[in-house]
Lab assay of single mutants.
Amino acid sequence: AVSDRLIGRKGVVMEAISPQNSALVKVDGETWRATSGTVLDVGEEVSVKAIEGVKLVVEKLE
């Protein structure tokens, strides 16, 4: 799938994300809905860990 190429890519949080709420991230110039197990604020850099349906699963870039 096209989205599989995004695993391992870096992105930027466009809307705050919490474990209860998905929000938008920008990866390679494209906007995607994403979820995370932690709270992520706007502007934080993230890494794509997986794809669940049409959502990216991201975590904060260390």
Results as ranks from 00 to 15, higher is better:
1 A>S: 12
1 A>C: 13
3 S>Q: 09
3 S>N: 10
4 D>K: 11
4 D>E: 12
4 D>H: 13
5 R>G: 08
5 R>Y: 09
6 L>Y: 03
6 L>M: 08
7 I>R: 03
7 I>N: 02
7 I>C: 06
7 I>F: 00
8 G>Y: 00
8 G>T: 03
8 G>P: 02
10 K>G: 04
10 K>M: 09
10 K>H: 11
11 G>L: 01
11 G>C: 04
11 G>T: 01
12 V>M: 06
12 V>C: 10
12 V>S: 04
12 V>H: 06
12 V>P: 02
13 V>S: 02
14 M>T: 08
17 I>P: 13
17 I>S: 15
17 I>V: 11
17 I>K: 13
18 S>G: 14
18 S>H: 09
18 S>K: 07
18 S>N: 10
18 S>L: 08
18 S>C: 11
18 S>A: 08
18 S>M: 08
19 P>L: 10
19 P>V: 09
21 N>P: 04
21 N>V: 09
21 N>A: 10
21 N>D: 08
21 N>M: 10
22 S>K: 06
23 A>N: 06
23 A>M: 15
24 L>M: 09
25 V>W: 00
26 K>E: 11
27 V>Q: 01
27 V>R: 00
27 V>F: 04
28 D>P: 00
29 G>I: 00
29 G>D: 11
29 G>Y: 03
30 E>F: 07
30 E>A: 05
31 T>K: 07
32 W>R: 09
32 W>F: 14
34 A>Y: 05
34 A>G: 07
35 T>G: 05
35 T>C: 13
36 S>Q: 02
36 S>D: 06
37 G>F: 11
37 G>D: 15
37 G>K: 13
37 G>E: 14
39 V>T: 12
40 L>I: 09
41 D>M: 14
42 V>R: 05
42 V>I: 10
42 V>Q: 06
42 V>A: 07
43 G>M: 03
43 G>W: 04
43 G>D: 04
44 E>D: 15
44 E>M: 14
44 E>N: 09
44 E>P: 01
44 E>Y: 06
45 E>W: 15
45 E>R: 09
46 V>P: 01
46 V>L: 01
47 S>P: 01
47 S>L: 15
48 V>W: 00
48 V>E: 01
49 K>Y: 04
49 K>R: 10
49 K>W: 00
50 A>Q: 05
50 A>L: 06
51 I>V: 11
52 E>R: 09
52 E>H: 10
52 E>G: 04
53 G>V: 03
54 V>P: 09
54 V>E: 15
55 K>F: 15
55 K>M: 15
55 K>E: 13
56 L>H: 03
56 L>V: 05
57 V>K: 04
57 V>A: 03
58 V>I: 05
58 V>C: 03
58 V>T: 03
59 E>D: 07
59 E>S: 07
60 K>H: 06
61 L>G: 05
61 L>W: 12
62 E>P: 12
62 E>G: 12
62 E>I: 12
